[in-house]
Amino acid sequence: MTTTIPSPAVPGTPVRGGRPPRTRGPGATARRSATRALPLLPAVVLLGVFLLGPVIWSFYGSLTDASLTGSAAQGASFVGFDNYLELFSDPDFPKSVLLTLVFLVASAIVGQNVLGLALALLMRSAHRVVRALVGTFVVTAWVLPEIVASFAAYAFFNDTGTLNSMLGLVGIDGPNWLFNLPMVSVILANIWRGTAFSMLVYSAALHDVPQEITESAEVDGARGWQRLVFITLPMIRRSITTNLMLTTLQTLSVFTLIFVMTGGGPGTESSTLPILAYQEAFQFSQLGFGTAIATILLVVGALFSFVYIRALRPEVD
């Protein structure tokens, strides 16, 4: 670090050694950019080995018959697209894709977004104390470590849990939620867990909507819902897009909540793709199979990210 001098960004500043800056050759320019890029190295190494590495490994591993036990555990051999062909002929896989879609749409796209927006809107006209209390509890459910939140949700939806004893108070004999309605339970739990994020994003977005515009619409005779649909929502549409993408990506990788609440069960009735990948790889020792599912998830996540990054483009450039 002491032998090379990073050149100032300002042209015309004196450089030690008395060399006029203009006469340096292309070699010096290359050396200068290399020195400037040097601090990127630790990050590049970490990301390359531990983030890009698994991604490449995932694509490669999905083409082998690797397993944790048995003969294939020693040396995995290349099997081409066999894992994928097997995957598509296995009834569990299409079912899991469907469950994942249901989970994404119901808990993220509809549940968290609509509830988050509704809370953000309602809180504007609510009493200060109510607003603070709602904010605190909604955000606490989100900030709690995932394993603790998952247990709280497990206890809530359990056959002998809080939900059924509350229903019992009003004379309803509640079902065994986790066993008979596993998807409903995990969807509701994920809404409980994740709504805070959407609520915070929408609160910030609504805060930025100039009040004069809604007020002048009110003067022109626009009703409450008209102001919402024709003025407020179009003005925060960028936040809506961003938030839809982010909640979708977060929900796509929800594992712990479902794993603790139902374990993917009963059977595979609530096995979304991350759970199925885990079950195949670690419970049924089908590493190649699990890796193929992981690869598909990565590709789906990458497609979502691609759309999201295109939407964010002006901020990077």
């Binding site: 990788s253 990948a277 670690f282 998830l297």
Partner: peptide, 29 residues
Amino acid sequence: MRINKPFLYGVLFGTCLPVTAMMVPVYSL
């Protein structure tokens, strides 16, 4: 620098990566 833009895009892409989905390949790696 010339690598700023591709690097930042790569980083942004990394923030979106579903890490949970990767745990099976991470284990074998």
